[in-house]
């Protein structure tokens, strides 16, 4: 008799033990379009969330091929966090193929991170034509590259997580506030760090950087692309190189998806430096969090500027810029 009841108890304990991890693992499942939003979600949600990013860091957000496996990830998601606007043209079809009503635009699980963000480069009515290149109709979509915009996004994510798990709402709100404080402190520190570069004019490859530049007081001399999304020809490159030399501008800022060869050739022609910055979390090795992205980019710019000032002691030549 004892053996039987012992067996029953053992069974009860075993099933409880088996269920324990499941209970502990009951968490909010979030799919984000890119690793930056995934990291912000992780920071706000902490251990209460399981986050996956569809896009990889080095990819161009406008050119992602929506694979059927993305749809599989979405099917099990409570929330779908995306950049919004017209940044990710591959998203609408993907959402339809995932067949989850709550994740569709306007659904409870659809988290548009651009909510409340003040956009730069909003085209005027007359500029809304492909003659202006591959323009974004609502304005520049790279708003996550201003660390202070991460604050609003953090709160948007906290609100969405709270709607899924109202019992943990205060935790999410608190973590979003922590994130806010951390980002304010980081921005203050990095703006101070960038003081020596304040007002410096730079050349950017694509319009990825206006938010970053506005925050850290960099100014734009020119864009390598003659118009957004249009590859530059040799004559355009030569013209920018000349402009750079004339105005003493040496920094060419590239994203990981920019044409590195063209960017470097331009820097070489102008006796300057091409610097690849992380436009996304995980775009470059070691850039694993939203905060690390800004730390990395600021240090990379300062280092490039130091090299530039070092080399400008000698007259710029091809040898010194290689």
């Amino acid at each position: 008799m004892n053996e039987r009841s012992l067996g029953r108890e053992m069974l009860a304990i075993a099933s409880f033990a088996a269920l324990m991890p499941c209970l502990a693992l009951a968490e909010v499942r979030v799919v984000a379009t890119n690793p930056t939003l995934a990291d912000l979600t992780r920071q706000v949600g902490g251990e209460r969330v399981r986050v996956e990013s569809l896009m990889r860091g080095p990819e161009n957000p406008h050119n992602v091929i929506p694979k059927p496996s993305f749809a599989m990830k979405l099917r099990n998601a409570d929330l779908f966090v995306h950049v919004g606007l017209d940044a990710e043209p591959w998203v609408p079809n993907l959402l339809r193929s995932a067949r989850r009503e709550r994740l569709l635009a306007g659904g409870d699980g659809n988290v548009d991170a651009s909510k409340g963000i003040k956009l730069l480069e909003v085209p005027s009515h007359g500029e809304l034509t492909r003659a202006m290149g591959d323009i974004h109709v609502y304005g520049n979509t790279h708003y996550l590259l201003d660390p202070l915009n991460g604050i609003g996004v953090g709160h948007t994510i906290a609100e969405a997580l709270s709607s899924v798990e109202p019992e943990h709402a205060s935790l999410f709100v608190e973590r979003a506030r922590d994130l806010e404080q951390a980002l304010r402190a980081l921005t203050e520190k990095l703006v101070e760090r960038m003081k020596p570069l304040a007002g410096t004019r730079v050349v950017i490859y694509h319009r990825t950087w206006p938010y970053f530049m506005t925050r850290f007081a960099l100014e734009k001399l020119a864009e390598v692309e003659p118009k957004p999304g249009i590859a530059p020809g040799p004559r355009h490159i030569a013209r920018i190189a000349e402009e750079m030399e004339q105005s003493g501008v040496g920094l060419v800022i590239l994203a990981t998806f920019s044409n590195q060869k063209t960017g470097r050739r331009l820097a070489e022609l102008a006796g300057g430096r091409a610097v690849v910055l992380a436009q996304e979390v995980n775009a470059l090795p070691g850039v694993e969090t939203y905060q690390a992205l800004f730390e990395h980019n600021v240090e990379a710019l300062l280092a490039a500027q130091r090299e530039l000032s070092g080399s400008s002691m000698n007259p710029p030549s091809r040898e010194t810029t290689r």
């Binding site: 548009d112 909510k115 409340g116 003040k118 956009l119 909003v122 009515h125 304005g139």
Partner: peptide, 12 residues
């Protein structure tokens, strides 16, 4: 309800 559309500088 809070509008989900982004805040834009101009709405035409």
């Amino acid at each position: 309800p809070v509008p989900s559309a982004p805040v834009q500088e101009q709405t035409v």
